[in-house]
Design a protein around this nucleic acid. Structure first.
Length: 894
RNA sequence: GGGCGCGUAGUUCAGUUGGUUAGAAUAUCUCGUUUACACCGAGGAGGUCAGAGGUUCGAGUCCUCUCGCGCCCACCA
């Protein structure tokens, strides 16, 4: 064992050991307890970022913890096919070869994507291994696998037959760059500085002669002037007095195209916005679309798939939407119809994959009716069948679910699950797209012939499904659904889902809906929502800002365990995590501390420590105070750590372990153990406490705990990995509050002496004498019994303890509860300084005493507060009073 | 426009159902002896718990308002 801990070689070696022995689905116990978690499948194009690292560390901690508790654990890893993202990646690659996907054709292109996936798709999986994830790698899944694809088809057909899937022509979010529809969730709203363009539309009055006069205009305000090419009407609020005169008008003229526009009156129009006049463009705006339906207006689409203007735009044909915007403004200016533009900040949807501004577009798409699916999913959370940790996310979830809108699931890309819908070319009328089922065959397999006309010319739908349409089935599709498999029987519903808040709507809510719709049960019981990883300024980590902290860099620099420990220790439930590289030093230092402590223990294990149980040692009552104390502390710690892990307070668990290992075990116990290190009992305690400490920290720091554990002596038939050892059980008899209190006092005495030494600048090497005045005889024995610790750790030569100790003539003085401690200071004393110090101390104590006395004099407190609290205060008052009188006496003597 | 979260030591954060003297880590200062560890040890200093009011015997914790910061949702063209 070398001096400093070097994680790199250790990690590789250890992971290989686990993989070789297939510990990932090993059972440590004989119980039938099952535990399964749902991994948020990372995007197959992705590389591990800090969010993944956090998410998977959380899952791995819980999985390892449960496995050590004897649960049979199932943690299925995998990736999703990330339709748009993956297609973009492969298209980019083709572009570098100066090819377009259209040149290859659909089949060839998909072949290309698969090749890409085979080559690069396991990057993130390998990175998860470096993170130490103990997933069941033999069961890795991919959303495009045959099994999962089968589940997707099954679900589509089922939902269609239940009337929960329909096709219709509506305004959807369209990404002109990816040239596909997006769901509402995939359009990310971002505030941008736009403008309100004020444009004059000429009014044509009834019975009007000649051209309109210069007053015959109505001013329309729009943020997207280019869509005016598709205007079919203008609309004002009937209550708006400013536009009363429009009731006498017949029509208005659309500038440039000179189309006649209807004038409609509808309460929907907000008088406050813009000029109060809304231009109605049913094919390019959702509000206008509704108005169009209401008033039977024509839908004029003026754009192509890539958001360039189409032939209807006349002279603007072929221009990009933003180019057209400018050109139209210029034209209007020439015509004298442009009034002004006003700065206007508003939220505009952007494609979540390529960040292109979304264009609302009228097109035929497939939708899932969400309201009926939401009903059981809402109830489940309301009735606490599913619990969010922290609970506040329930509100967010319920709010979204109660206002849920239909889900646009069709995508106009090639990579994904092709929609299992077939059209009979004979009887299907592709002009009538709204709810027309004639000639539409929805089937898992391609039908031989049309059931209506027996025609055999049948073509499959070109669109593919939203990637989330496969992800939302993950909890059961990965277990073999729709087959009735053993896994489903044993592991569904799963126990826990850990994820960040950003995919609650995308994924969590939909999984719950799918769980009820297809399994009749919730997919999981607990949802642990952790924060989002940000940089130390609170910004999301992103490539464009360049503030990414790469977990693999951190692993290289500090080690995986350091990464895991550090990030977990700062992840308070539900709070976002602000990271900087510095924060990983904590974990690295901790690993190093543990390593060195273990070296110390190992080099001192001279006796045969195997086969002696701590229980027996405790029972026979021959352990010295320090040995007995650390056992008690350990079991207390283990209980607390278990409690924290059960309630998803992983940071508390990590910090409790840190506190125990560093401060209780290393700082105090190891130092004390040096006094009796030659004794077998002490060695047995050292060994067992270290070994069990390794076990409770194993879920958080799997590599170093395993490495040290491997180097410890073991019984011959012992398990070969800490990973499958048992979690220390709570044992009441091993905890001892009396010894806890005694040692706490001894420790405080030591600290007090050290304090006085520092205060008086007593040479560190010098041994000194101390005297302690106690109030009870038992305390005399207690301190005498444990004086070796005081002598050693505070560098004390002689200790005088009794109830009658008098303060020596010149002495440093301290009060610990009801005992007084004196350090004779012959030769070094500075009386004035000590006087000042005592005075300050007395003042401080008096202030506290006053507060306590005031409270005790208050009738309300004595009468209304619980007796326990009142007694506590009374006791405190007594202690303060004795402290003060003692100090005053000392001061007088000085 | 609606909803949520956060303002605690120089800095980064903990603080369970209100209850003894508000805790860590890090930075800083002093010192450094000892059979693991300088990625270390000992000791010190550092807080009007954002502000104002209220409930209570008792508030960092509960309520109301104000100020500052962040996030999510939403078809105001």
């Amino acid at each position: 064992m070398s001096n400093a801990y070097d994680p790199k070689e250790v990690e590789q070696k250890i992971y290989a050991l686990w993989e070789k022995n297939k510990f990932f689905h090993a059972k440590t116990g004989t119980d039938k307890k099952k535990y399964s978690v749902v991994i948020p499948p990372p995007n197959v194009t992705g590389i591990l970022h800090m969010g993944h690292a956090l998410n998977n560390t959380i899952q791995d901690i819980l999985v390892r913890y449960k496995r050590m508790q004897g649960f049979e654990v199932l943690w299925m890893p995998g990736t999703d096919h990330a339709g748009i993202a993956t297609q973009n990646v492969v298209e980019k690659k083709l572009k570098a070869e100066k090819k377009r996907k259209e040149d290859l054709g659909r089949e060839k292109f998909i072949e290309n994507v698969w090749q890409w996936k085979e080559k690069y798709g396991s990057t993130i999986i390998n990175q998860l291994k470096r993170l130490g994830c103990s997933c069941d790698w033999d069961r890795e899944r991919f959303t495009m696998d045959e099994g999962l694809s089968n589940a997707v088809k099954e679900v589509f057909v089922d939902l269609y037959n239940r009337d929960l899937i329909y096709r219709g022509t509506y305004i959807i979010n369209w990404c002109p760059r990816c040239r596909t529809a997006l769901s509402d969730e995939e359009a990310e709203h971002m505030d941008i500085d736009g403008a309100f363009y004020h444009i004059k539309y000429p009014i044509i009055r009834k019975n009007q002669q000649g051209n309109p006069t210069k007053d015959d205009y109505v001013v329309v305000a729009t943020t997207r002037p280019e869509t005016m090419l598709g205007d079919v009407a203008i609309c004002v609020n009937p209550k708006d007095k400013r536009y009363k005169h429009l009731k006498d008008a017949q029509e208005v003229t659309l500038p440039i195209l000179n189309r006649k526009l209807k004038i409609i009156f509808d309460e929907e129009v907000d008088v406050e916005v813009g000029t109060g006049v809304l231009k109605v463009t049913p094919a390019h705006d959702p509000v206008d679309f509704e108005l169009g339906k209401k008033y039977g207006l024509e839908e004029i689409n003026v754009m192509n798939e890539d958001a360039t203007i189409n032939a209807i735009g006349g002279e603007f044909e072929g221009m990009d939407r933003f180019e057209a915007r400018e050109a139209i403004i210029n034209k209007l200016k020439q015509m004298g119809l442009f009034v002004k533009s006003e700065v206007h900040r508003h939220a505009v949807g952007h494609c979540y994959r390529c960040n292109t501004m979304v264009e609302p577009r009228l097109s035929p798409q497939w939708f899932v009716k969400m309201k009926p699916l939401a009903v059981p999913a809402i109830k489940a959370v309301e009735k606490d069948e599913i619990n969010f940790y922290p609970k506040r996310w329930e509100k967010v979830y319920l709010n979204w679910m109660n206002n849920i809108r239909d889900w646009c699931i069709s995508r106009q890309i090639w990579w994904g699950h092709r929609i299992p819908v077939y059209y009979c070319q004979n009887c299907y009328d592709d002009k009538d797209l709204t709810d027309n089922r004639r000639g539409v065959i929805v089937s898992k397999t391609k039908p031989e012939k049309c059931p209506e006309c027996k025609g055999t010319d049948i073509k499959q739908e070109e669109d593919v499904l939203d990637t989330w349409f496969s992800s939302w089935l993950w909890p059961f599709s990965t277990m073999g659904w729709p087959q009735k498999t053993k896994e489903l029987h044993e592991f569904y519903p799963t126990s826990m889902l850990a994820t960040a808040q950003d995919i609650i709507f995308f994924w969590v809510a939909r999984m719950i809906m799918a769980g009820y719709a297809f399994m009749g049960k919730a997919p999981f019981k607990d949802i642990y929502i952790h924060g989002i990883v940000r940089d130390d300024k609170g910004r999301k980590m992103s490539k464009s800002i360049g503030n990414i902290i790469d977990p693999l860099d951190i692993i290289d620099k500090f080690g995986t365990d350091a990464l895991r420990f550090s990030i977990i220790s700062i992840t308070a439930q539900g709070q976002d995590i602000f990271l900087s590289e510095k924060k990983f030093e904590v974990g690295r230092n901790f690993a190093n501390k543990l390593w060195n402590a273990s070296r110390f223990v190992k080099m001192n294990l001279k006796e045969d420590v195997i086969g002696v149980s701590l229980e027996d040692l405790v029972k026979c009552g021959k352990l010295n105070s320090a040995d007995r104390w650390i056992i008690s502390r350990f079991y207390k710690t283990a209980d607390e750590v278990s409690k924290y892990l059960e309630t998803y307070k992983l940071n508390d668990a990590a910090n409790r372990i840190y506190e125990f290992v560093w401060h209780e075990f290393c700082d105090w116990y190891l130092e004390m153990s040096k006094l009796t290190i030659e004794q077998k009992n002490t060695q047995v305690v050292l060994y067992n406490i270290l070994e069990m400490s390794l076990r409770i920290m194993h879920p958080i720091m799997p590599f170093i705990s395993e490495e040290i554990w491997q180097g410890l002596p073991k019984e011959e038939d012992a398990k070969i990995s800490i990973m499958v050892s048992l979690w220390p059980k709570s044992k009441k008899k091993m905890k001892d509050t009396v010894i806890d209190k005694k040692m706490a006092l001894i420790i405080e005495i030591i600290q007090t002496v050290r304090n006085i030494r520092a205060n008086w600048k007593i040479e560190p090497v010098k041994f000194i004498d101390i005297a302690i005045k106690v109030t009870q005889d038992e305390e005399v024995d207690m301190i005498r019994d444990n004086q070796i610790y005081i002598k050693r750790l505070a560098r004390v030569e002689n200790i005088t303890v009794s109830t009658t100790v008098e303060k020596p003539e010149h002495a440093g003085v301290a009060v610990i509860g009801d005992l007084e401690l004196f350090v004779p200071l012959k030769g070094v004393i500075d009386i004035d300084r000590e006087k000042l110090r005592l005075n300050d101390l007395i003042d401080e104590l008096k202030k506290k005493l006053n507060l306590v006395s005031d409270r005790l004099e208050k009738g309300d407190f004595v009468n209304k507060a619980p007796e326990k609290i009142v007694n506590m205060e009374k006791e405190r008052k007594n202690v303060l009073e004795t402290e003060i009188s003692g100090l005053e006496k000392n001061l007088a003597q000085l």
